[in-house]
Amino acid sequence: MWAQILNATIETVYMVGVALVLSALFGIPLGILLVITGPRHIKPLPVIHRSLSVVINVGRSLPFIILLVAIIPFTRWLVGTSIGTTGAIVPLTVSAIPFMARVVETALLEVDWGVIEAAQAMGASTQQIITKVLIPEAIPGLVLGVTMVAVSLISYSAMAGAVGGGGLGDLAIRYGYQRFRGDIMLITVLVLVAMVQSIQSFGGWLASRLNHR
């Protein structure tokens, strides 16, 4: 039993970890693009801004369980399978990208506009403003945002587990629920709670460490 739980925990960490990194890889640039193309920001591009916003909203409004099923053909085409941890990473990533983009947007919009203008007045280019002002100034907010995405990825990964994705969710459903193993159910829940707690505390600690405001 303990070996199973350990194995499932590793699977969950793997799924969430990979999905988090991938969604950050795509979601952070999207969030930056969303912000800077906004009206009265450093690179106003109304068409791009609005289309991006619509796409993100669509992604955000799809329930995860529906997205999971709906993109099975895409998942198969991309990674050759739609089941197991690898199969679960694709829908997890796809659903986390728009979330990540919004979270990044919120963090970047918090940056004091006066500071951005000061950089403009000093002759900074758009790229320099992004890399030297927007991102560094938003770091604490970005860390908290990524923490939020990580926590929701854990709960989504449990859902992905329910449709054969592996991990703690899978274990809880197969043993805890279908085979009436209350002890396994309890332990998986405790492990999940511990995971969420530690991610949240670490994120909060890191954000305040990096905050010089």
Binding site: G114, V115, A118, P136, I139
Partner: peptide, 10 residues
């Protein structure tokens, strides 16, 4: 500037 506009991260 009136409100200095320094980068708080630096």
């Amino acid at each position: 500037f009136q409100h200095f506009n320094l980068l708080s991260s630096r």
